[in-house]
Amino acid sequence: MKSKKANYKTVLTVIFSIISVLYVFPIVLVVINSFKKKTSISLRPFALPDGKSFVGLDNYINGIEKVEFLKYFGYSLFITAASVIAILLFCSMCGWYVTRVKNTFTKALKFAAIFSMVVPFQLIMFTLAKTADTLHLNTPVGIVVVYLGFGAGMAIFMFSNFAQSMPLEIEEAANIDGCNPLQMYFRVILPIMKPTYVSVGILEIMWIWNDYLLPYLVLDIKKYKTIPIVIQYLKGGFGSVDMGAIMACIVLAIIPVIVIYVFCQKYIIEGVAAGAVKG
């Protein structure tokens, strides 16, 4: 009986090992092709680079120069970091507040925030781009306001749900000790909300870093692009498509994400799991 069970566990491990290798294969394929001459990528994607088709780092150098990759990587990084920090700070304050103080305004705000979660982006994409344009929010700094607004729904929802489960006694004690609400918020409530910060932060980072359509429509894309826009721009057929540069840029877009993932995977996976249980 025992050995039978051990056997089937070994079989499962073997099966999943094979599936895992297949799972990462598409990514590996892109990495392999990023070292090949651009003409041999489309023709024979499964061939390993050989003496004739191997071009070393040429595609990378070419790709980085051609689309000013590093500059746009910087914009992507700034937009994601600034937006997520803004969302975490302001939406956690707001989410907690609408749970503690109930009046017409806070009730309406919470209801509208939850409602916004089910609205598909396509419904407001045109008018949002126009609004952002009119208010001159078409810059990497301005788009932070747009992300705070459009991303507020999920964040307010998750923070207010968490606030409902927080014991009031701690806050009352802080109040008696003479804290004003802001001091209380930053010294008492914020530390308790830490797990929700991690969950919301991870979900928002995954969304904003990879978002294509919102920044494409909101930003002044002659001046500012994010990584997904650059990739789409390269492939979208402006002149001849340089497959080598595309492969290199895709690899450059993926690698930082995977490096961060490898180091923080425990938090990321736990954060995602916790986020859904509450949501």
Binding site: A86, F90, C91, M93, C94, W96, Y97, V98, R100, V101, F105, T106, L109, A112, A113, S116, V119, L123, I124, F126, T127, L128, K130, T131, A132, L135, L137, V145, V146, Y147, L148, G149, F150, G151, A152, G153, I156, N175, N180, P181, L182, Y185
Partner: peptide, 29 residues
Amino acid sequence: KALKKYLPVFTFPTAIAFLIGFIVPFVMA
């Protein structure tokens, strides 16, 4: 009572962004 006075501090940054990023575009749309 103490909390009520702080309504603008806690909710206005999000509410204003939400107005720009969702409510106005939604109504216009």
